[in-house]
Structure formats: structure tokens, C-alpha cells
Design a protein around this nucleic acid. Sequence first.
DNA 1: CTGTTAGCGCTTTCAT
DNA 2: ATGAAAGCGCTAACAG
Lengths: 332, 332
Amino acid sequence: MSEAPRKATITDVARAAGVSLSTVSRVMNGNATVDPALVERVRATAAELGYAANPLARSLVLGRTQTIAVVVPDLGNPTFQAILRGISHAAAVDGYHVLIADSGERVEEERVLAEETRRRTDGVILAAPRMDEAQLGPLLETLAPVVVVNRGRQDAAPVVAADYRHALRELAEHLHALGHRRIVFLAGVARSASNAARLAALEDARAAHDDLEIIEIPAGVDVDSGAEAAEAVLATGATGVLAFNDLVAMGLLTALTERGIRVPDDISITGFDDIPFARHTSPPLTTSAVPAVEVGAQAWRALHSLLTGDEATPFASLVPQLVLRASTAPAP
Amino acid sequence: MSEAPRKATITDVARAAGVSLSTVSRVMNGNATVDPALVERVRATAAELGYAANPLARSLVLGRTQTIAVVVPDLGNPTFQAILRGISHAAAVDGYHVLIADSGERVEEERVLAEETRRRTDGVILAAPRMDEAQLGPLLETLAPVVVVNRGRQDAAPVVAADYRHALRELAEHLHALGHRRIVFLAGVARSASNAARLAALEDARAAHDDLEIIEIPAGVDVDSGAEAAEAVLATGATGVLAFNDLVAMGLLTALTERGIRVPDDISITGFDDIPFARHTSPPLTTSAVPAVEVGAQAWRALHSLLTGDEATPFASLVPQLVLRASTAPAP
DNA sequence: CTGTTAGCGCTTTCAT
DNA sequence: ATGAAAGCGCTAACAG
């Protein structure tokens, strides 16, 4: 645990090589034309001294940090983990670093975190911000360049989103086609845009089928929420359940099975996200595969465009894929 | 997507308030004694201009960034996600930001990533580095302050680790006590320290019971690895399986069940980590609960100590907790 | 082709 | 108590 020796500065290298700072700078940046002999000499001494330019100093003078910030509502949420992963990998390829900030689902923290991290970075990606539109719009202006993930189209920033509405509608249609007429929807975080999109899907489904009854029950986003909703679900007498996501579906599935209810014979359950475990529940979960990693990668691409002065697609919608497995069957 | 207005600088505030830079700086840092009237005036104009000190400039002059780096082998690995979460939350409480770097399990990337991110931060946490001891030791010296997670004790840095050896030994003892005499171990990433710790646990168990046979089979760290190992496991005729982690156990469980093998009647399976789903498999998984979030939190605390000049505990070992569920039973 | 100089925005002696 | 000035380490005109 000894102290590391002070890092060599450009001045050290210049002195050691017997040249000026500018020359060292030019050599290190492959800039302009420098005498080959000098280039060689500077390179050598730089290597010898283990010199590398101080990124902070460079950032200050260049006005860019080669770093972006990602603000997520909850690092424990698999969806955000996947999005973060997509961003991180894609950004790394372009030589960018990623600063993370977790708002812990505290909506009042989002603005502060975004603004603060923005100041140390070249841009920010807001993953599924929970704040309302009235707050988001103005914030985006001050944050530019900024990209928003999983929200509706914005004036002030490109948006990359998974089409939850379409996907849940598809799941609802699937149940309806199987003969289910009374189904329940286990809702997630009330204020989240992805929950709103799902509610819209429910409306679509209701409008399309007047023999279809959909009952909304507040639940949550994790396994326990699903388990806790079991009694409420049974009380409705519904034959099908659209769970907010796979975790909720799994919790419900387990709780129902423990009560001796058979899935899908007595009741059908759908998940959402297609997390890796979804295929390993018993029965395996019918769900919708959300390309979260790809969403992250596209968010990076949009931000990168902004950073390089290119135009970014204002709204990119990625369509989740319906995955039919064994947790759904014809209504009893 | 308009451009954000240039941020106000300390010079702007000084001019607007009719004072010198130093005074503004003093006020903003609550430094020294400044005339209350001036403090008020500076505060007001700063607020009016929406001024906040440029973190980059501060970092350059102060020599600290209020940021740390975390290098993980794979952001997709739930264990590292949890560790990262623990670090992130704990660091946020102390007002630190977190830069993440994912080496993608490419061992040769680790050193570069660590060194590069270190230069933009005040310290780094190496989560389960895959490089060997010969590489790690010297690297730590150049990285200081640095904390290592899930490796053996180091000379040059504090280490925070979960005691995988003890935990797997406990699981093995559990199977032995149930009468299992031939069991298989589904190994993870060969070069990882956590795998090595598990192998040591196996040795401990073998040494303690000469009627115990443990067969090692290379698998992996994810669900598919477990599923793919099913045939190999059956071929051994073992009555118990120690899976590398819960994911592997789940994959195996599913694959075995599909083949009509009953768990735990025909064969017992143990997982590792106690991920949230472990209790929701059927049967629920006997496993060992690794306090990964807490490991992360402690790693931050160690680094924070280093950062503030305090002594850090050289080696902190967190003991996973045995969780008995229904995937293990007496040997047939 | 190379060196000198002026900042990037801020903190911190050092004077006054 | 306040301001002037130096400097963190680097890049980019600007001269020569």
C-alpha cells in the first residue's frame, strides 16, 4: 500500500528530451509535422518516463472529457442493467468512458444527478426518467447533448425506446385468441412511462374487443410483488394474467403453484422482458423479449451522433418479440 | 435539441458581483472570513447566473476528482452487478461518482482499463480481476489507492472478499451429511479466483471425508452452461451436484427435469449466490447467500479510508450464509 | 519545423 | 477582509 510515484508531466518529458512543451504535445497527438528524429527522441523519453497526458488537463483545455453519464432509476433492475451494458460496450468501442448515477427511484434526485454528472461529462443518457413531462422538457435543454431512453418522443432530445405498447398489446391479443375474456394486468411503478405505455396497450385491446375485460391491479416490479398479488388475482376470477414483467410473473407463478393452482391449466400467465430465467420457470414463461442491450447501444449511437455534430434520429422504436412458451394455454 | 447556453464561469460571477475571483471562490467554498454583505451579494449573483464551479477545473487544481473507477470482468454477471450496486450506493452517500469499466472477461484488457480509468479518478476498485498474481501485485502499486474484491490477500492493497471456500465447504458438508458419497462439482471460469476458492473447498471436503468422491466437470457461469452439463452429470452416476452458482444450478435443474429426473429425489442440487430467483425454482434451490452488495459497500469503505488517509482493513472476509431449501434431500 | 505565449476555470499563497 | 498573481497540466495560436 505504498504511494505511487508522481506521474511524469509533459514538462518532465520536454526537459528530459531537451525540447519544448509544444513539441512533446505535437508528438503525443501525432500532430503537425515534427522532425522524425525529434519524434523518435520524444517517444523514447516519454516511454522511458511512462508518460501519458493527464486526461483532466486535456479535458479542461479541449472542453471534452471523453466521458458520458448514464442516469438510471435503479441499478438493481435487470432492464437498466441491460441498457447500461449496451451503452457501456458501445461507448467503449468509441473510446468513451461511462459514469453511472443511480437515482434509487427517487424522482426528485433525477434532475440533480443529471445536472451534476453532466458537468463532468460530454453528454448524458437518461434511462427511463421518472419525472413528468413538464419537468423533463426544460431539463433536456440544459442537459444537451442528451439522449432519453424509454420515454415518448421529445422536442429537445433524441429518444430510444422499446415499444412496450405494441408488445403488451400483442400479449393481450394472444390471451384473447386463446379464449380468455377476463384478464388482469399486474401494474408496475405507477409513474413510469413504461407502465403508462402498457396501460395504453390495455386500452387498445379493450377498444378492439368489447368482450374483453381487463382488471388492473397495482403490484410492482419484482418477484415479491408478484407473489403478494396472488390472492388479489384469484379474487378476480380471471383466467389470464398479464404481469408487468417476468419477475412479477415468476413471483405470481410460484405463489399460485404453492396454492395448488395449475398454470396454465387453471390460469395463464405472461411475463415481459424475457430475462434469461424466463425459459427456466415451470412452466416456461410466455413473454415478450425486450432488446434492452440493443436499446442501450442505440442510445449511445444517438448520443455519439450528437457529440460528433451529426444528426441523430429523433425517435427510435425497438419492437420486442413475442415469445410463446408454456405458461399460456386456452382458457379453461 | 438546441444548444445549451455556455455555463457561467467564476469570472462572470466576479464581474457581475463587482468582486475578485478569489472572493467568489472563498464564498463558494465557505472558506475563510468574508464580509457577510459580500457573501450575500456573491451568493445572489451566483444563484442568478446559475453558477456552479466547473468540476474539471477544480479537479485539476485540487488534484482530486471525487470520482472512483470500478473495473469488472462482466457487467452481465449478477454478482458484479450487485457489487457495483453496493459500491455505487455507498460512494454516492459520500459524494463520490463512479466510473465503470467492463473488461468483458478479456484478461489482457484489465490492466489497461484500470490504468486508464485510474488517471481520471481518485482511486479504483478491481472487482474479481482475472489476471494472475504475478501481474496483479505490481499493478496494484501503480494504481494506488486501490481496493481489490474477491481475491486473496494482497501486499499492495486492501482486499474485500466473500469466503467462497468456507461457503462451498459448507454446502459439501450438507450433501455429505445427507448421505451423498459421490458428488459432482460444476466448475465456473477456470482462471477466476472464486473458482479456485471453490476447488480449495473441495479439497478440504475430500480431506475431511475419505468416503467422499467429488468429480469436477467444467461448465461455466450461466444457465446454459448448467443445462449443457446435464448429460455429463448423469454419466457420473452422482447423487449430488454442487453447481458453480445458482444460474448453473437452474440450468441443470431444468435440463434434468425435462429428462424425467426428479430433484431432489433422484439427485440433489445446490446453487451458489442466492439470487432472487433461487427461491422460485421448483424445487426451490438450496444455496449459499453471498452478500455481494455488502461486499461492494465494504470495498467502497476501504477505498474511502485510503482516500482520506486512514488505515484500511487489509483483508475483510464476508461469510456467505447457507440457505437450505428443497433441492437437496437424502441420497436415494 | 520549433519555441514562446496565452489561456481552459479554478484555488491558493502572498501581499495589502 | 480583499485582491493580485501564480500555477494545476495541457493545447493551440502565433511567431520565428
